[in-house]
Design a protein around this nucleic acid. Structure first.
Ligand SMILES: NC(=O)c1ccc[n+]([C@@H]2O[C@H](COP(=O)([O-])OP(=O)(O)OC[C@H]3O[C@@H](n4cnc5c(N)ncnc54)[C@H](O)[C@@H]3O)[C@@H](O)[C@H]2O)c1
Ligand SMILES: NC(=O)c1ccc[n+]([C@@H]2O[C@H](COP(=O)([O-])OP(=O)(O)OC[C@H]3O[C@@H](n4cnc5c(N)ncnc54)[C@H](O)[C@@H]3O)[C@@H](O)[C@H]2O)c1
Lengths: 230, 230
DNA sequence: CTGGCTTTGTGAATGTGTGCACGAGTGCCT
DNA sequence: AGGCACTCGTGCACACATTCACAAAGCCAG
């Protein structure tokens, strides 16, 4: 089944927190902080200090007891583990509202994920320029993926077209997909898919609101102490 | 009667799957399907059938052995549990790339989350109309929240302004926040916060890509013969 | 060099989620 | 009516995740 067994496996929960630590550590480095304790990092990340230490321990023993972690070194190690030592160009499928926002968002390229191309099936969209990238026809997808060595595809089409987009991406050679359409994609097992579903997030919030209303009738929250959340 | 008035708590993992079931069931109802088995729903949702049954069992025993679940009734029950029996107006803070995409996205209102208002701090943005809603100044936030009875706020400002946006939302009376800015927010414990962080998602994909490369030659891996053991 | 202080790294305990396996209902057919 | 095929609901075991608690390790002062 899984061919990758050679390297130590990092738990999913940890992998999803490493990017958060990375961003915070980068900011700290920028601010001139050389050293940070698990407690300090935990505070900034809004998590438990023991969790931070355990997470970081999966990378190796890069801390110094009694002192903490060297920020720059930790940044380097996390980047290495996450595969951020080089850029990962992405291709966006769908140049609608969302596709345009994504293309116009500089933070993409800054963080190592330059937009290698945007494609759409609608001829009226093709040719327009978004965030410095010209929208191309979806038939050019294979060529873009091949020549720009794209491994990651982003789906920003309507739900009805998402499976088609996924099929095309997979056929073109993409191996990871970030899906914004509210649809469960069917792809080969080897393809990594992550979904970002706005409606789901809102409905989860709705659940908690509804629950809050059901219990007691204290409409407004009391001004209690603050606690970080994620 | 009404014996199950108990405030049973539904596991987080289940709550996050209910919206997915709900969407699928709604589609099935639309397509004229009256009845569905846990197996059928599981297939469409891309999960294990036992998980579906266990998830649904938290709502009560609404299935019929030997038959399955009545789609319409299940839709009703899930909507009730998620608090979707009435609309939850939302207010969007930040009318930039993302805020505009969100405002222009019809799926919001359709799913019970009408945009009650969009606010921005930039006077050049104020007054423009997005998706039928006029952008107003952020100082009007308390009034919007109060008059439109808004419980949910969406943060679409740059990272540096996100904490300020959160503070204003909380002060105005919002109790749930959906945060798109790549920042850990600090809010009172009673406030429910959910984060959607694009960079995190991409970095998780990057991790798996890097891992797939096996620590040896990375990069290319293009060409054919993918899908492996799928 | 020793002792006191700090903070890491991790075993163990606890909490949460998943999936199998199977008893218990239900509907249909003979 | 009785048997049979089907599918739910759930106990249980296992896997994964979080948190606690503490010894080991490093730093520094004297
Ligand atoms: N806009 C938002 O804020 C927002 C928020 C959350 C989720 N989403 C989801 O993101 C997706 C896109 O939303 P949007 O508002 O940008 O929609 P949109 O209709 O504005 O844009 C969709 C684009 O995809 C293109 N397209 C359609 N079929 C295609 C195909 N087969 N191949 C390639 N391109 C194709 C269309 O031509 C169009 O340009 C939807 O699934 C939506 O549910 C959007
Ligand atoms: N655009 C995207 O596709 C995208 C994708 C992922 C994440 N994000 C995140 O979403 C956020 C917004 O991105 P964007 O591209 O829309 O940025 P943007 O700069 O286009 O828009 C930000 C808007 O927020 C307004 N603003 C600034 N400070 C404010 C304040 N204190 N109160 C109210 N409004 C304020 C600005 O005037 C501006 O209109 C960022 O944090 C970004 O990291 C964006």
């Amino acid at each position: 089944m899984a061919p990758d067994r050679n390297r130590r496996r990092i738990p999913d929960a940890t992998v999803s927190r490493l990017p958060v630590y990375l961003r915070i550590l980068s900011e700290q480095a920028e601010a001139g902080v050389d050293n940070i304790s698990s407690e300090g990092l935990a505070e900034l990340a809004g998590v438990n200090a023991a969790k931070v230490r355990k997470d970081l321990s999966y990378l190796g023993s890069y801390g110094t007891r009694g002192v903490g972690y060297e920020v720059a070194y930790l940044v380097y190690q996390i980047r290495r583990e996450l595969g951020l030592t080089h850029d990962w160009p992405v291709v966006i499928v769908g140049a609608g509202n969302l596709g345009q926002a994504l293309a116009g968002y500089g933070g993409f390229g800054e963080r190592g994920f330059p937009v290698a191309g945007i494609v759409d099936i609608d001829d009226t969209k093709v040719g327009t320029v978004l965030g410095g990238t010209r929208v191309r026809h979806i038939d050019e997808l294979p060529q873009i993926v091949l020549t720009r060595r794209v491994n990651i595809g982003v789906i920003a089409t309507p739900g009805g077209a998402a499976q088609d987009a996924a099929d095309r991406l997979v056929k073109a050679g993409v191996t990871s997909i970030l899906n914004f359409a509210p649809v469960v994609l069917s792809v080969p097992r080897a393809i990594e898919v992550r979904k970002v579903d706005l409606a789901v997030e809102l409905q989860i919030l709705s659940y908690h609101e509804q629950r809050r209303a059901g219990g007691a009738i204290h409409a407004v929250q009391s001004g209690t102490g603050r606690s970080a959340t994620a």
